[in-house]
Design a protein around this nucleic acid. Structure first.
Lengths: 327, 327
DNA sequence: TTGAAAGCGGTACCAA
DNA sequence: TTGGTACCGCTTTCAA
């Protein structure tokens, strides 16, 4: 790595002081036109590029947020990321994206690195709060889709009980009684969405006993529904943990020759754009995903500025039923 | 914004010098256990967080790449971004993602900001090379999917002539003669993909005279095919600029009651994952999108280190026909 | 209009 | 094991 060209080098070859170089480069007034030109020429010739560290050190204005997500290829996280990016840009902030590939190991590595690279971090974490707290060494953090205890943390909650209830109501109203679920278990425990589902079922006197487990991918959904239907061919409807899994389920239904929605109704969760490109278009308990990202940025901003936090009810994104064609 | 807590504050409250604080925080040896603990306590209490700028200034090791894409919600760019992120992580580099929303204005703003935030920039740019050159003020840049003249730039080329030729051969072999195209024009000029298509058509003595123009979105594809078929209902196959548009075309065909592939064959370009979730699965001239991103990072690294560039033939990503169900 | 000097917040190297 | 000092590269006073 050849030595860095500094402002001093430019100053020397242009025959001026470094302050003058700084003036020329930053378009400040108070500089002679020809001097400025001379400096600019010298800078170009030497291939000078100011150090962003030195600059940042002096004018501590730029804010950089780390966005941690498990999988950029999962459209849900992409939509959240897009929302975060947009909100950050509106404030002139930067976003460094970290993809943890859904692995705890990568997540640890990411956190280690994040600490020295950004001003605050937002995103989806899987590690225990105690571990996060220990390694984040005081950095403001906003957890998405997950509760927090430590006061230093903040979280954006996704409230889907009412939406899932709507979905089950809708299915029951359409005559469905045997409704299964494709869940996504974390740490071998049923998800919170599963409990929303179970509650909604009980309200109709039904039991949520037909549950399959899927990994978070389209293929995962295909596989899970295939398995579930093998065990419970009597199901007439399924609720999936999210749209990605539901889209996989749609594919499985097609392969198994079960027409959707007539022979099997499918409901997803998230309300992604993805649900509109499949056939039939996916009915889903929909979320404003962009808002999730935007809220996280907003909240990170408050943490950073030590401003009062948003009240809990503002840190909530509600999901509502969006009926399309798959039910 | 309350004043920043610096290493001096910690040193003062812990009653030691800042060098000692530095030692304690960086787990250097040569420090008494109790002193270290005292420093750590003080740091925690004050909520001290080291300035990444000051750190970066002194040990100038971290490399940050700016990734500029027009639309993070477009799965093609997401796949490229994922490839870039992965390649960057493997080197311990960071990636700041910029979404220009496909607007020249945003692109200008992005470039302005990028210059002082990253060490090199890679991505999709729309602005003229002269303008890029002027505002990038010497920063190494890798253009994706676009030729370059200025030697300081580098580019990752996408070579699809052979793949498109394969696609047209395949369609013709299946009896298609009236094949249309849904193009994506830039600056009101047919794309390079259109010319590949036209060449492939001529090779069979056919003319590429049924061309529609689409915006880069699923909806754009739907609209464009609807229009095109209104003008040219006799078409039996269409080749789309990319998979996103092709997926929209699939939807249009469905709405118009034209069965795919029997009454209309559809071929996309890019070979995205997206093509496997639709029904029928999309035949596409496929690209290794992750590799596109990875190559861009690799090349940026060489530019940065002033190492010899990769030879042009390595900076090429070839597309090949991937037959699925839509043809 | 220009330059000298003083930091910005850290780390490295030395001496104590 | 500690602290003093120089310095990273740049911008911001303040004089000249």
């Amino acid at each position: 790595m050849s030595k860095r060209v500094t402002i001093n080098d430019v100053a020397r070859t242009a025959g001026v002081s470094r302050q003058t170089v700084s003036r020329a480069l930053n378009d400040k007034g108070e500089i002679d036109g020809s001097t400025k030109q001379r400096v600019l020429d010298a800078a170009r010739e030497l291939g000078y590029r100011p150090s962003r560290f030195a600059r940042g050190l002096v004018r501590q204005d730029t804010t950089t947020i780390g966005l941690v997500i498990p999988d950029l290829l999962n459209p849900f996280f992409t939509e959240v990321a897009a929302g975060a990016l947009e909100a950050a840009r509106a404030r002139g902030w930067h976003v460094i994206v970290y993809d943890t590939a859904g692995s705890d190991e990568e997540e640890r590595g990411t956190i280690e690195v994040v600490v020295s690279q950004v001003d605050a971090v937002v995103g989806y974490f899987n590690l225990a709060e105690s571990e996060l707290d220990a390694h984040l060494s005081g950095m403001p953090a906003v957890l998405i889709g997950r509760e927090h205890q430590t006061p230093r943390f903040s979280s954006i909650r996704i409230e889907g009980a009412a939406g899932v209830r709507e979905a089950v109501d809708h299915l029951v109203a359409n005559g469905h009684r045997r409704i299964g679920m494709l869940d996504y278990e974390e740490r071998s425990r049923p998800s919170i969405r599963h409990s929303w589902f179970a509650d909604a079922m009980s309200a109709h006197g039904l039991v949520a006993d037909a549950v399959g487990n899927a990994v978070q991918s389209v293929d995962g959904g295909t596989e899970a529904l295939t398995d579930l239907l093998a065990r419970r061919p009597d199901l007439t409807a399924v609720f999936a943990f999210n749209d990605v899994i539901a889209v996989g389920a749609l594919r499985a239904a097609r392969r198994l020759g079960r027409a959707v929605p007539d022979e099997l109704a499918v409901v997803g969760f998230d309300g992604l754009q993805l649900g509109t490109v499949v056939d039939p278009a996916l009915t889903s308990v929909a979320l404003d995903t962009r808002r999730v990202g935007a809220l996280a940025i907003e909240q990170a901003g408050r943490l950073l500025a030590r401003e009062p936090q948003l009240p809990p009810e503002e840190l909530l994104v509600n999901a509502v039923l969006l009926v399309r064609e798959s039910t």
